[in-house]
Design a protein around this nucleic acid. Structure first.
Length: 574
RNA sequence: GCGCCCGUAGCUCAGUGGAUAGAGCAUCCGCCUUCUAAGCGGGUGGUCGCUGGUUCGAGUCCAGCCGGGCGCGCCA
């Protein structure tokens, strides 16, 4: 609809002004007095054409053809062209939703291009906290969104399982291992807090017993490093699955080293004239490529930096053919962005295919007190605790809803509430309400006065026919529309909202903001509630009931599709 | 000091250079014999951090301030 309106406007514009430089935008006015769709292109043209916007609007309208489905177009100050739609357009929307079902909203923006979202990528040295949770939810929502928008999406977790961190993990783990077996020993002074990894070492003992006790410290640390790392990774994966986050691949940094891919990338850089030796180290000329200063790739002791491995990892991504790569990082890593971009460029790759999205902190409030998360302060809130306290759906909703560049204030008390105050609940309630109406239509009921069983308003065979009719033709919905102006206004608002899903998905995908779908779902839920208040679905008139049930089912479908992107369960009953 | 992010109602936040800046919560007033009142309607509440600039038009773009967060290693 919007596209055909835009085309008509453009044609009208070109025929009278011959100016194709201004993009025609069709908007949806908030105020119902301004019609169903509006076009403000005259305002944009006023400056160039040196004409009054009102006059331009008139010219455009005169030169554009009348579209089917449009009941009328009028000009309103300061120069908008407002359109009113005919009822059949609404019927068509419902028909379309029913024919496309779970695919309603899917778009072709991505054109099937391979895209990769890399996120979480937490070190295998401890439990995931709420910050990882934010990245996990955001990343998985973005992946779902890009998939809906037509990309061929892969999701990857980069495991930093090489180098100093894992060595240190091994040292700490072996010390705890000995302690748990009653052997007195020292603990690495700069190590991870004992409490943060003790439960993992216990698991290692459950699986392997005391067989490593005879090893010396360095051999023990090596043995424990691998085992503990595996246990931690396993626990991270299980926890992430609890909130619906599943990766196509856990990409191991150590395998990158083992396969010689880091050395290969370093060789490329060495030969690229964008790297140089100085003070016994190998440097990347990052400053020439937009960074604040140059960066070390190989330290003077011969070991490779994190950046060297990351460069190799990203080279590998490019070689796998991804045309869009999005990394989700915590904002505390933003200083590394220019370095990685520089490395990618130095490797001869198009760095515009690599996007970095930085997520801000999550603040938790509990009993009115803001709990700041900080490893040093020892007030880290674990993702597991959060999921346990408020539930998977609330966690997903609250971490999905916000834009990444804004900090999140996660109120535990609100997230647990069963009321409109809690949007996660409210949306699910709307979906459940749709399901409830359908159940009511198909199930026999008990009359409270006579205690006798009354037959279901709609029989199973009838329902089968109706369900087919929704997909067969827009005609099935003709009777949905009440003559009553107030009821019709609510129906229309709801249907116009449902029709927005495809556009909402495309815009959210372009902006890389899956959170918009959360807000959109809330709007749909709100419009459903308002419609529900003024209009009965199940009536004595079969044709009316059939048409309105179709509207309810379409609403349920749209809610379910939007919820599937943000990964919140579409519950049938509450 | 330099770099990045943020500043919109009492609170939590939306807001693609365009119509009277919007929601929810809180607060106040209404609405249950009918499919879920776990809900719906209405009222109160704004110098869009400040000052300039660009523009026919700025919450939105630019510059400078103020306030908050984060980062500035041959750590990862």
């Amino acid at each position: 609809m919007e596209q055909s309106l835009a085309a008509a406007m453009e044609k009208g514009m070109l025929s009278c002004l011959s100016d194709g430089e201004v993009a025609v935008v069709i908007e949806r006015p908030r105020n119902p007095d301004h019609g169903d769709y509006a076009c403000g292109v005259s305002l944009k043209l006023a400056g160039k054409a040196k004409m009054a916007p009102m006059k331009i609007a008139q010219e455009i309208l005169q030169h554009s053809e009348v579209l089917s489905g449009v009941a009328g177009a009028e000009i309103a100050p300061p120069g908008y062209i407002n359109f009113r739609l005919q009822k059949p357009v609404l019927q068509k929307v419902l028909h379309e939703i029913h024919t496309q079902g779970a695919d309603f909203g899917r778009g072709t923006l991505g054109g099937g291009k391979p895209a990769m979202v890399e996120y979480v990528s937490a070190n295998p040295t401890g439990d995931l906290h709420i910050g990882h949770g934010r990245n996990a939810v955001f990343g998985s929502c973005l992946a779902n969104l890009l998939d809906f928008a037509g990309y061929d999406v892969s999701e990857e977790f980069y495991v930093n399982d090489a180098g100093a961190q894992v060595r240190q993990l091994g040292e700490c783990a072996f010390a705890i291992y000995k302690k748990l077996h009653g052997i007195e020993c020292g603990y690495p002074s700069e190590g991870y807090p004992e409490e943060s990894i003790k439960h993992f070492v216990q698991k290692v003992i459950e699986q392997n017993g005391d067989q490593f006790l005879s090893l010396n410290d360095s051999a023990g640390a090596i043995a424990l490093a691998d085992l503990t790392k595996a246990v931690i990774q396993q626990s991270q994966a299980e926890l992430l699955e609890k909130i619906g986050v599943k990766f196509d691949r856990w990409f191991s940094e150590s395998i990158l080293h083992k396969d010689g891919k880091v050395d290969a990338a370093l060789d490329l850089l060495r030969n690229s004239s964008l790297a140089y030796e100085s003070e016994g180290a190998l440097w990347l000329k990052a400053k020439e490529l937009g960074d604040e200063r140059d960066r070390v790739l190989v330290k003077s002791d011969g070991t490779k930096t994190y950046l060297a491995a990351d460069a190799a990892y990203h080279l590998d991504k490019y070689e796998r053919g991804f045309e869009l790569m999005i990394n989700i990082w915590g904002a505390d890593h933003h200083g590394q962005v220019p370095g990685l971009k520089a490395a990618v460029q130095a490797l001869g790759k198009d760095s515009s295919k690599l996007e970095l999205i930085l997520t801000q902190i999550v603040n938790l409030s509990r009993n009115g007190q803001i709990v700041r998360m900080s490893k040093r302060m020892g007030t880290v809130v674990l993702l597991e605790e959060l999921i346990e306290e408020v539930g998977r759906d609330a966690v997903r909703y609250y971490l999905a809803e916000s834009s990444p560049q804004n900090p999140i204030n996660f109120d535990l008390e609100i997230a647990k509430k069963s009321s409109k105050e809690n949007p996660a609940f409210y949306i699910q309630y709307a979906h459940a309400r749709c399901c409830a109406i359908l159940r009511r239509a198909l199930e026999p009921s008990i009359n409270t006065e006579t205690k006798s069983e009354e037959p279901a308003p709609v029989s199973a065979s009838e329902w089968q026919e109706w369900f087919e009719s929704y997909k067969a033709s827009p005609q099935a919905f003709v009777e949905a529309f009440e003559e009553d102006a107030e009821v019709f206004a609510h129906q229309k608002k709801l249907i116009m909202q449902l029709a927005l899903l495809p556009e909402e998905i495309e815009e959210a995908a372009i902006a890389r903001q899956p959170g918009r779908l959360a807000r959109y779902a809330y709007e749909v839920a709100n419009d459903l509630q308002k419609f529900y208040e003024v209009c009965r679905v199940i009536t004595d008139d079969k044709n009316v009931t059939r048409a309105r049930l179709g509207l309810i089912l379409a609403t349920r479908q749209v809610l379910a599709n939007a919820l599937s992107i943000i990964g919140v369960t579409a519950v049938e009953r509450m």
